[in-house]
Design a protein around this nucleic acid. Sequence first.
RNA 1: GCCGCCUUAGCUCAGUCGGUCAGAGCGGCUCACUCGUAAUGAGCAGGUCGUCGGUUCGAAUCCGACAGGCGGCUCCA
Length: 656
Amino acid sequence: MSDVRLTVLDRRGQRIERQVTTGTTAADLYREERGVIAARLNGELRDLAVEPRDGDTVEPVTVDSDDGRSILRHSTAHVLAQAVQELFPEAKLGIGPPIENGFYYDFDVSRPFNPEDLKAIEARMREIVKAGQPFARREVGDDEAKAELAAEPYKLELIGIKGGAGDEASVEVGGGDALTIYDNLDAKSGELCWKDLCRGPHLPTTRHIPAFRLLRSAGAYWRGSENNPQLQRIYGTAWESRGALDEHLKLLAEAERRDHRRLGAELDLFSFPPEIGSGLAVFHPKGGIVRRTMEDYARRRHEEAGYEFVYSPHIARSTLFETSGHLQWYAENMYPPMEMEGARYYPKPMNCPFHFLIYRSRGRSYRELPLRLFEFGTVYRYEKSGVVHGLTRVRGLTQDDSHILCTPEQLSDELASLMAFVIDLLRDFGLTEFEAELATRPDKYVGEIAEWNTAEAALRHAIEAADLPYVVAEGEGAFYAPKIDLHLRDAIGRRWQISTLQVDLQNARLFDLEYQAADGSRQRPWIIHRALFGSIERFFGILLEHYAGALPPWLAPVQVVGIPISDAHVPYLEQAAGRLRARGIRVEVDASDERMQKKIRTAQTQKIPYMMLAGDRDVAQKAVSFRYRNGEQRNGVPIDEAIEEVVKVVDARIQV
RNA sequence: GCCGCCUUAGCUCAGUCGGUCAGAGCGGCUCACUCGUAAUGAGCAGGUCGUCGGUUCGAAUCCGACAGGCGGCUCCA
């Protein structure tokens, strides 16, 4: 009986109208197509076992697509949970969703997992994969599900909150529809091996897992709240092929190689002496050069863009932070106060109140607006001990902070040009891929909703004018302002948050900021807060990772190192170095006792852009020989030309 | 802050069952070598084994607290 008419797409997207018999499954439709592990039925992801009905449209989902990988990872998470419960029968199940590049599963266990446990679990998983257990879906009623899962308290809780979709728990119960349980069956006997409450879809069998690896275990709060019990989470990764897994593991190793904490020590850039305190960095001379170069360049660009430079102290009395609302809203992120002369002084967590006082120090005219106040302002924030991380999450940080005060009419244009300025400056640091996130009014907020809406609209306009890809993060704004967080992608595709732009009307009122308008009336200015690097420290760390330590010559602490073939050539190189120095180039001559080969190795590991060698042949030709970071060399370069080459690259701020 | 792991020389790390276990490589210093594109050789110096407390005849080693770090969670520039 050919009574079911279907529109069937193949993996190339070709549509074919087909008539099949009742009971034909998606698996039957794609029997000939390799790598198809699920189907999209009228746009919805389903198991391959699904039986399409008359008029349905069926598309294949291959394991190497985004959806396919998610399904693969979700199924691998199930295999993980099955292995854990077989080895640790007392383990209670939390949730086990796919995530970017992998999956995890949370368990409530009496004892946390250790690395040996992970090995044993992974071994058991391989057996389950090899056994080729089918994933079988069945729908159950709420009461039925509760009875079956009586021993799984967390699953019961999920059933209870079913419908509250949107979080990761929705992977387990979906939103609204009937509950489903997936049974893992013995491939031969059909006997039940394991089951889990799950929305699906899943791979046809565990054998369809080509490659996976468990990565680590860690504590994680149940349903993401620190008020809930802490479960033990196991992270893993799964891929459509052995090769894809290896690629991913290589990327992880590459990320480790680029770790700015490692590079900071290896290149002698900065350190975190425990004597100073957790999350408080010192920059060594070489790191200092990089940082100062970054700052100098940013300073110059800001000057050109009409910013005025201000300075403010690191501490202020409590009354200032009462006015700004920080003590009311932000106290838990602030360092505790110092008592003096009957007053309490707090280290500042933000620069804004100081800049507002500068604005308020005298009457302001609309003719002065937009007024752009800039400061490399060092602030201190109490970060919980567990979150401090290298330069990207510290307790003392310097923001390239500014506050722009403008009229309501200027707001939109100012934001749009600011956005262009931000992107342009970041591009000069060699960053090219940006994404914006519009963070809107949080639950804890001050001010009027109408003002928030105006501010949010202005920010949205700025993003759209800059033609940036963006997402909206509902409720993620600061308590006093909605904001744009700008993210960038680094050289190996990782996402970092950097710039932040906020529009704020609260503080103009809190600080009673005014300007006199053309008609003689007094008006409130709008305020734009913005930090472009985010913080100098964080940006420093991001750049280091982006470049894997091989900074472009204009930022490199040492731009050229002179390497003599023998001692006799030191004076010759010193002379060339002197000429480079006169052109503003940072150059050293390695006059140590080491062999020339060793000096090259040292310069290479220090990632110095230019090695300038000189031996008898070069001296005879009034030349030097270059060796570059990539190992290439250029011999017999006339000194004048060599100098121009370096100066040109540094001035142009290009990478070599 | 929470869970787990870690802390031995400037760095990276050995150190078994609690008893010559204070060790190596790199780095530093000294001497010799003077060399054409990623490690010349020899010698020397460096450590209250994170800190404090406990167990023990005896602690780098076992236990506890604290500090710092690492991986996550929560939070976030």
